[in-house]
């Protein structure tokens, strides 16, 4: 059971395309609400200069130095990756040593996974680590938020059924703890809805999940059904998930661009957009990947939340709250219990 002390969340401030400013603002704001103990790893002099301009509480906000990164322009991804390599290992080590309960980073996901592999252990019985992502779905009855969990989105190939089954268990447990859905529905992403549709590992995973009592498996979903909200958790191969996520992000961007074009081009279109403003705003709120806060790497023995690189203050603040919620609900204990049958070699 989680103790009474506050959750300590460590941030790598070199991650993200917007620079450390967004992270500093989120940390300063939440420090005054006492939601969690926040530790910012980065260039201390710069961080202190930024903090000096904001109201904050040093009792819940600490700074840990990292080697100074060269100044960079927003969007300079190469320099960003180099800078992340300076702060992220320090943050990861603090997490591994137990100085922090959770790590939030907007650094390149590949780097986060590599460092997590090096510094952190896995949950007992866990064959692979899955990167999860929150995706927008159509609103459905009985769901508080029109959101779903897609995993794995790591970009790594998942070629065995065992890993897919474990991802389903991890994803369902995470969804249950975080969204408080008592029995989240789980589906496999495949080429068709039939039990024999898709590659061999998906067919085999389908068969195992059908007989798994701990997971409410609702069958296969096609890519076209992904956004319809038929399942709370959708499990797929890491490479497919990565591409699906990229496609969704691209579509969101394209929609925003189309609206911008319409706004500039015709007065009547502008008028139409004005009339639709409230609905468009709601749609944008749901589909904006940069406000979700962070998605977890599931299967590790510590909590790592990976935020979108374009995340803003609100997203980082949400990530801190999410980390606090995960600890308060004893996510680690729940995941360990859920994965225990895999550790003992029995049937979950």
């Amino acid at each position: 059971m989680a103790s009474d002390r506050k959750t300590t969340v460590v941030f790598d401030t070199y991650g993200g395309t917007g620079g450390p400013g967004e992270i500093v603002r989120a940390a300063a704001r939440l420090s005054r609400q006492g939601v969690a103990q926040v530790v910012l790893v980065g260039e201390v002099v710069y961080l202190q200069d930024q903090l000096g301009l904001l109201p904050y509480d040093p009792m819940t906000l600490r700074l840990v130095p990292a080697p100074v990164a060269y100044p960079r322009r927003p969007g300079d991804t190469l320099a960003q990756a180099e800078a992340a390599e300076l702060a992220l290992p320090i943050a990861m080590e603090m997490l591994a040593e137990g100085e922090a309960d959770a790590l939030v980073t907007a650094s390149p996901p590949e780097l986060v996974r590599d460092l997590a592999d090096r510094h952190l252990g896995r949950l007992p019985g866990c064959a692979a680590v899955a990167a999860a992502a929150v995706v927008p779905t159509m609103p459905r009855q009985g769901k508080d938020e029109p959101l779903g969990l897609l995993l794995d989105v790591s970009g790594r190939r998942t070629t065995d059924a065992e890993s897919l089954v474990q991802f389903a268990v991890l994803g369902a447990t995470y969804a249950r703890v975080v969204t408080k859905t008592p029995q989240p529905s789980v589906a496999l992403l495949s080429t068709g809805q039939g039990a024999h549709d898709g590659p061999p590992e998906v067919v085999a995973a389908h068969e195992r999940l059908t007989s798994l009592a701990s997971v409410r498996f609702v069958g296969n979903l096609r890519a076209t059904d992904l956004s319809r909200g038929f399942a709370d958790v959708v499990v797929t191969d890491g490479l497919v998930g990565h591409n699906v996520l990229g496609l969704l992000e691209g579509l969101t961007e394209m929609t925003v661009e189309a609206a911008r074009y319409a706004w500039k081009t015709k007065v009547t279109w502008r008028l139409g957009l004005r009339l639709l403003a409230q609905g468009v705003g709601m749609l944008r709120k749901v589909s904006e990947f940069t406000t979700y806060g962070g998605a977890p790497l599931l299967g590790l023995d510590r909590l790592v939340l990976v935020a979108n690189p374009d995340s803003k203050e609100a997203a980082f603040a949400n990530a801190i709250k999410l980390a606090a919620r995960c600890r308060a609900a004893d996510l680690h204990g729940q995941l360990t219990t859920a994965m225990a049958p895999f550790a003992t070699g029995g049937q979950p």
């Binding site: 002390r5 506050k6 300590t8 103990q37 201390v44 202190q48 000096g52 040093p58 009792m59 819940t60 906000l61 600490r62 700074l63």
Partner: peptide, 17 residues
């Protein structure tokens, strides 16, 4: 109910300022 982190954060902040 201030904890070790709170005390350390206060001292570090005083030092930085």
């Amino acid at each position: 109910g201030v904890g070790a982190e709170g005390l350390a954060g206060t001292i570090e902040d005083a030092l930085r300022r």
